[in-house]
Write a protein that binds this DNA or RNA. Structure first.
Lengths: 221, 221
DNA sequence: AAAATTTGTTAGTTATAGCTAACTTATTAA
DNA sequence: TTAATAAGTTAGCTATAACTAACAAATTTT
């Protein structure tokens, strides 16, 4: 495939692409933490190799080929994260940086083996879906905790993002994926919630937290 | 640490260093599969960062710092190989290329975890010693099968090299590491041997094979 | 000891991937 | 609708790490 740098651009493009709106040079530069001029340069090269379509001053559009390549890199990343957590005993807050490097490893047998050893997991440790081998990423239908109502019972299915500090916070609250959460009340003023889950009853979750907890309703109190 | 390319130079230098004789630019170039001019250039840079000592037209000498850095890269390589074989079910002929990439991953916790999960293995799947965490590589005292005598019983402890075809050959003969080998006779003309091991009796091993099987004597027939 | 060969170095080129500075195009505000 | 701002591009520079071609030093052979 492409160089590590190119793979990172493809990955970033894939993520921006998911948010449906047009992808700009400036935006891509922000995500990649490089200057706009560097982006213009790189995007030209990626266009030459058919990973994306690009015309001066126009939005960047991934091609089917580019989208598939990106999905397969993300597949390697997420399979690795899941392997590290389920087979090696790492915490979900430890695996991102390792997977960030492992995703560039060129070895189909390695990732096939991980997949096999884990019986083809569909989600990574943070609840993000793992693209399938053909580069397909099926959409999930989870909604932020703050979009549910009082007396709803939900399951925590994914995190909107996986920043280290956020994961550490959830660890400190012993709030894990697939945990059942009961919404006792919602404070109208700051949207903070009083919830119960696992062995914790009547815990306060701020709106900052609850917007990032992606859930699925399973019943009522 | 250094770039991937620099790490590969250090590794090559370490291996050449083990063969005690002075390291030349030409030799290093052959191992690295680059032109001599590229070596001269790189060696200058490595010298500037203190990985080695170098003066024009003089042999290259690794510094203590360089030797340690190299040993730690080799540690990552060999730990990975062992992990892939013992924890993931790969064959010893499949792991080199993967480890070659994984050895550049910057993540102490990953390799510490592998080490822990395997209870600090001392050898990799091909019998090569794994440098310890402080960069020490203890010498092994194994000798090629062809240096033993008729009626000696030995254990296969390591391979002199691990080329894919050689490993495949050993697989086809069902000859594994730690297998006990009894030397029945040695053909004086071509130094081929008739040996028995496992469930195989009176198998012929050519000198080409036996020189690459590093063994340790455990008794007599 | 001179000639031939091998070994090693230097200078200059290429590709990748970033940067700054200057400029152009597009969009938004006055 | 002009002016200001934001977005995007171009040109030229830097570092890494390879290369070739030409040359210099060291070693071997005759």
């Amino acid at each position: 495939m492409a160089s590590q740098s190119k793979e990172n651009y493809l990955k970033a493009l894939f993520h921006l692409d998911q948010k449906d709106k047009a992808i700009s040079v400036t935006e891509l530069g922000k995500v990649m933490e490089v200057k706009k001029s560097s982006v213009t340069n790189m995007v030209k090269k990626l266009a030459e190799s058919g990973w994306l379509k690009y015309e001066k001053y126009q939005p960047i559009r991934l091609t089917k080929k580019g989208r598939k390549a990106a999905a397969l890199i993300i597949r390697k990343h997420r399979l690795t994260e899941m392997f590290l957590v389920t087979k090696m005993g790492f915490g979900w807050e430890e695996v991102h940086d390792i997977a960030e490097q492992m995703e560039h490893i060129d070895s189909p047998i390695l990732f096939d083996k991980m997949d096999e050893l884990m019986d083809s997991p569909r989600f990574d440790p943070h609840g993000s879906p793992i693209p399938s081998k053909d580069g397909t990423l099926h959409a999930t239908h989870f909604y932020p905790l703050d979009s549910f109502k009082q007396n709803d019972i939900v399951l925590l299915k994914a995190l909107r993002h996986s920043e280290h500090t956020f994961l550490e916070y959830l660890n400190s609250k012993e709030l894990k994926l697939h945990e059942q959460i009961a919404i006792h009340s919602i404070e109208p003023f700051d949207k903070s919630m009083i919830v119960s889950y696992g062995k914790h009853t009547h815990v306060v979750l701020s709106a900052t937290i609850s917007t990032n907890l992606m859930c699925e309703k399973v019943g009522d109190i």
